[in-house]
Design a protein around this nucleic acid. Structure first.
Lengths: 158, 158
DNA sequence: CTTGATTCCATTGACGCCCATGAAATCCCA
DNA sequence: TGGGATTTCATGGGCGTCAATGGAATCAAG
């Protein structure tokens, strides 16, 4: 598997360390990035994290915007300027900075959520709310699209 | 045969393991995916499962959405974030996660239902209810469409 | 010397992997 | 064609390994 999937909830210890899920670590290892690239999510109280694949997406996004344009500087600021590369210790753990924890409202538990080329880090409760919302909106979109574009049958059998 | 058909009801053992029906396993083997890709069904108390064929549908859907767009993160959250790749042991069994079991209301028996490129996993009773409902609706649809668009499966299973 | 951080080691519980059993389907040969 | 032999499957259990977590030890400074 070469992308982040599934979700995991882990505990921060007294020193603020938290284990990156093993399956994510193996994706990162394949990706080849040393450390963990993290930035605040653009429109959610969460963090986006990943490796080279994520950096590649950011590059593609920025290169599609006109140099010196306002949009480009804004995105660059949000995606690059507030990011950080976290060290991963021998046991596969990272320490989130205070500003990251503040942005995501993180206490002593976090939920990792795989989104393909990147994953997000949430406060568990906030993620549950976000997930319920995402499901509702996806369901609504499916209905509006007449059950076709979105994977899967409308309950019909065979 | 290169698709999932028929239905089977198997028991979970004390460790929560359940055998994937042998005929499904051979489909998965041909598909080439290592493990079993699973996510909660979007509009039913059931699980969608499969291999590359299923994953491909999701990829096609997501690749049509711009990286860092709102919809993409939403769909990725609902589809990838709640999915999991279950390991298949030497005997062809998987262990369902707690959240999967909760979503489908699964206890110690499950029903596998082949739907072509994917299959579903149900609580046996819920599946029977779903089946009765599906039959009724198919019958109604046939009547309304004058027996044409809904090409005649007599509702027969197996 | 004290405080904070980083590396190393220990624990525990879950999971992966291996082998065993019984029942049912298939095969095979008289 | 019938019935025994063989294979396939679903299921059960034991055990080693690994992951998540916690704490100790080492290091870096102020």
């Amino acid at each position: 598997m070469d992308r982040f999937v599934s979700n995991f909830t882990n505990r921060l210890d007294a020193k603020g360390r938290v284990s990156i899920p093993a399956s994510y670590r193996s994706v990162l290892a394949r990706d080849g990035f040393d450390g963990l690239y993290v930035h605040p999510a653009l429109d959610a109280p969460a963090l986006d994290a990943g490796g080279n694949a994520l950096l590649g997406e950011i590059d593609r996004l920025l290169s599609g915007l006109a140099p010196y344009s306002d949009e480009r500087d804004l995105f660059a600021t949000a995606l690059l300027g507030t990011s950080d590369v976290l060290k991963i210790d021998g046991e596969g753990r990272v320490i989130l900075t205070e500003s990251f924890k503040a942005h995501a409202g993180i206490g002593d538990m976090v939920t990792f959520v795989g989104l393909g080329p990147k994953f997000q880090i949430w406060h568990p409760d906030r993620f549950n709310a976000h997930l319920a919302d995402a499901r509702a909106r996806v369901g609504e979109l499916r209905r509006r699209l007449g059950n076709r574009a979105v994977a899967d049958n409308g309950g019909g059998m065979t």
